[in-house]
Computed example of a mutant assay.
Amino acid sequence: MRNQQWSKVKKKLDSFICDSLKNRVQFTVTNYRKAHDQLGRAFITVDKKEILNMCTITSDIEMYRKENEIRNAQSIEYDVYNGHQNYQIGIQAHEMIKAEGFFAQYDFFDAVEEYFNLPIEKALKSDDMVIKILSLVDRRVGKRTLEGMKESIQNEKEIIQYFYNLRCEADRIMKLYKKFR
């Protein structure tokens, strides 16, 4: 997907948005040319208000902190020559920050690519928050499916509940049971 132009990916993503949210939910990617890696951020807006920011720099800072936290908790000193250990700690830290809601722009691209290749039933059950958000605004998810998720959605993170409530409100399924800040 990274080889595809963002405009084509965005067009495809937009085609999956349900009619009731068509002009309300937007996906945006911004690259910073002067950044060392020329990456930037991706973000999701609802009614022109930024709801989810996936900034590479913020994610990298959180990952660095989390790696240090892991090393300190396990009394492991950084060893430049132990590539395998550093890699494993990096993977663990990355999964932890994603679970906490810190995403980089490349996490967004990876999630979009996976989302495009998943059946909607599997996308709704994904452990990846971005994939779950994309599937909650997907036109292939019907009212009965949303109503069936009413109980399980209460165990989800607040951002997932926000998009679930947004969709239910837009489709006039039920009243909101919890507001997102």
Rank of each mutant, 00 (worst) to 15 (best):
N3E: 08
Q5Y: 10
Q5I: 12
W6E: 01
W6S: 03
K8S: 03
K8E: 12
V9P: 02
V9W: 03
K10I: 13
K11Q: 15
L13W: 04
S15R: 12
F16C: 06
F16V: 04
F16M: 08
F16L: 09
K22W: 06
Q26S: 06
Q26V: 13
V29P: 07
R33G: 01
K34N: 14
K34V: 12
A35P: 06
A35F: 03
F43I: 04
V46W: 03
K48W: 10
E50V: 09
M54C: 03
C55D: 13
T56M: 03
T58G: 14
S59P: 04
D60T: 15
K66R: 09
E67R: 15
E69R: 04
I70T: 05
S75T: 08
S75Y: 09
I76V: 14
I76L: 10
E77R: 10
Q85P: 00
Q88G: 11
A93L: 05
A93Q: 02
M96T: 00
I97G: 10
Y106I: 10
Y106L: 15
D110V: 06
V112H: 11
V112C: 12
E114S: 09
Y115H: 10
Y115T: 06
N117L: 04
P119S: 08
E121G: 00
D127G: 05
D128M: 04
I131F: 00
S135D: 02
R139Y: 12
R139H: 14
R144H: 11
G148Q: 07
S152I: 07
I153H: 03
Q161S: 07
Y162Q: 07
F163D: 02
K175S: 02
Y177N: 14
K178P: 06
K179L: 05
